[in-house]
């Protein structure tokens, strides 16, 4: 198979298995994309971890812990896929803690209040699941297959987040203000989440059919699904230009792409702290890996 034939095959809906021949360029793009997804799952638990001990009830603590466990589990599954493509998990973690690898913009921000926990679990997870559902059709079959399990678990996370938000919205003015204040802070990063609106034909991840939709399609789907749900609770979206046109397309203020670039290249308000925590945790647990691997050998 030539590279052109391979491209034609994946663009026609064909799927690829680990041991199939694939162009080096495709393998490199897969590793980059999937590794970033794994990093995001692993780093994504840190903003929520900060709230496990401060969660208002035992039920909430348990749910948050379960969610954190799910996300770490996703990272394990995803790094396994990367490993089969040729990059070991330890190498992924080296690149992550040294700041060479990227993870999603939303995990570089602080979680200031319990309102953040609700907004993250509801809306950040909603934005993520839109991207992840589009990966169910990924041309790389082993990744598409684990995405089924991941999407199944994410659906619990969205419900949990919505439950937290609804509980606050049914509470006191102060509680409602927590949600509004968190939503106002998170709106910018949420709008940046799906990336700049390059035409999908120019997006190498779409060309290789690693992703099955363009960035703007994903954002439109997010707005269409969730803005009405936000509005019906009486919450305000901090964008005066936001509206749905008669043809069904959402208009909005241009997201701050400079902020996105700046944040994902390691300059977010919490990037350094969280990478440092990950680095220290890895050092502290090194002896466990040594003992386990020595005993198993």
């Amino acid at each position: 198979m030539s590279e052109d034939e391979f491209l034609e095959y994946v663009q026609g809906g064909g799927q690829v298995e680990t041991r199939d021949w694939m162009p080096d360029e495709y393998r490199a793009k897969l590793i980059k994309f999937i590794e970033m997804h794994g990093n995001s799952e692993l780093m994504g638990v840190l903003p929520e971890r900060e709230w496990i001990l401060r969660a208002p009830t035992l039920q909430r603590k348990l749910a948050l812990t379960a969610k954190v466990q799910d996300e770490v589990g996703h990272a394990q599954l995803i790094y396994r896929v990367v490993e089969d493509l040729g990059k070991p998990r330890e190498a992924c973690l080296d690149d992550l803690v040294s700041g060479r690898a990227k993870f999603h913009n939303v995990f570089h921000y602080p979680t200031k209040t319990w309102g953040d926990v609700g907004v993250i679990a509801w809306l950040v997870d909603a934005a993520a699941i839109i991207s992840q559902k589009a990966l169910l059709k990924c041309s790389y079959a082993p990744y598409a297959r684990i995405m089924k399990k991941i999407c199944w678990e994410e659906s619990f996370h969205i419900l949990h987040g919505r439950d937290v938000v609804l509980t606050l919205m049914n509470g006191t003015d102060e509680q409602r203000e927590l949600v509004q204040e968190a939503l106002t802070r998170w709106w910018g990063p949420l709008m940046q989440f799906h990336g700049n609106p390059i035409p999908r034909e120019d997006d190498p991840m779409f060309v290789w059919r690693i992703k099955s939709q363009g960035n703007e399609e994903a954002r439109q789907q997010f707005l269409d699904g969730y803005v009405p749900q936000i509005w019906e609770l009486g919450l305000e979206v901090p964008d005066p230009k936001l509206r749905k046109r008669d043809d069904g397309v959402w208009e909005y203020t241009e997201p701050d792409w400079d902020e996105l670039r700046y944040v994902v290249t390691g300059h977010g308000p919490r990037t350094a702290d969280r990478l440092d925590l990950r680095r220290r945790a890895r050092e502290r647990s090194a002896w466990v890996r040594q003992v386990v691997l020595a005993e198993a050998a």
């Binding site: 394990q76 599954l77 297959r145 684990i146 399990k149 386990v292 691997l293 198993a296």
Partner: peptide, 17 residues
């Protein structure tokens, strides 16, 4: 049905994971 794969140093750990 095949569900996925896990990495483990031996069967005992594989069962836990």
């Amino acid at each position: 049905q095949h569900a996925g794969s896990i990495g483990a140093p031996n069967l005992e750990f594989a069962e836990v994971y």
